[in-house]
Amino acid sequence: MIEVRNLVKRFAEVTALNNVSLQVDDGELFGLIGPDGAGKTTLFRVISSLLLFDEGHVEVAGKNPVSDYAAIRQMIGYMPGKFSLYQDLSILENLRFFTAIFKTTLEENYDLIKDIYVQIEPFKHRPAGKLSGGMKQKLALCCALVHKPRLLLLDEPTTGVDAVSRIEFWEILKRLKQQGITIMVSTPYMDEASLCERIALIQQGQIMGVDSPEGIIKTFSKPLFAVKADDFYSLITDLRDWNEALSAFSFGEYVHLTMRSESSTAMQVESYLFSRNHSSVSVKAISANVEDSFMYLMLKKEESQ
């Protein structure tokens, strides 16, 4: 569905996308994972034909977003990261407006949005500006869906949305995928990555890896420990000073510690921390999650540069 090869997009001083290549298959739920400013929005805008690019090759359903932008705009549903509906229009008025500009009716594709719409229907006469974050996103998704797009581009749909609504939102995406819609979604939340079929990790305009979440985790080849102690702050600085340690990141109440040597053990870590006078030390070997892999890939990239 989407084919991006060696894409380069420069703004005046920064290179927002640097040699990006990825491929999204038909009917796939594809996640673009990366921190703020990584280039996610720029990539979405290039794919949706809203931005021109400097180098590379982009194809959406076989169409070129530069020359054939009209065909692409007809077939995609795009939900920008910033809430982009009319705040002074009610839910129903927004929906009717977007159905009208796509020359369809609410009734025609009601099946597609029914699941989502029933959740916001009680408020259908309320101005969009007065909705909660979660409801706004559901409405925006409805508006992006009303014309039954083949490709859905969602730029950070769950940012600023409460935990319950986020879970609901991903449930909705799964159901849409079952209807055969290809979905590309970006998020800065690593925990959402495992909900996608395949993900691309993006950092500073560069793709660090494209694979299934499990595949990404497999690239993580080093021993990983979750470490806890009374004095959290000196724990993390001590671990970072340790030359056996590759990296130490805080992760909730734990520090996730990656070791340089494949043969490192929990015992080794414990004895190091006792030598630094830490109390109530707990060290557990754990398996990596997507965020650990992201940090690891980022580190490897920095080292190789």
Partner: peptide
């Protein structure tokens, strides 16, 4: 400014 132009542009309008 509100970003709605972005949505209008990606529509077939």
């Amino acid at each position: 400014e509100m970003g709605t132009m972005e949505v209008l542009l990606v529509s077939p309008l």
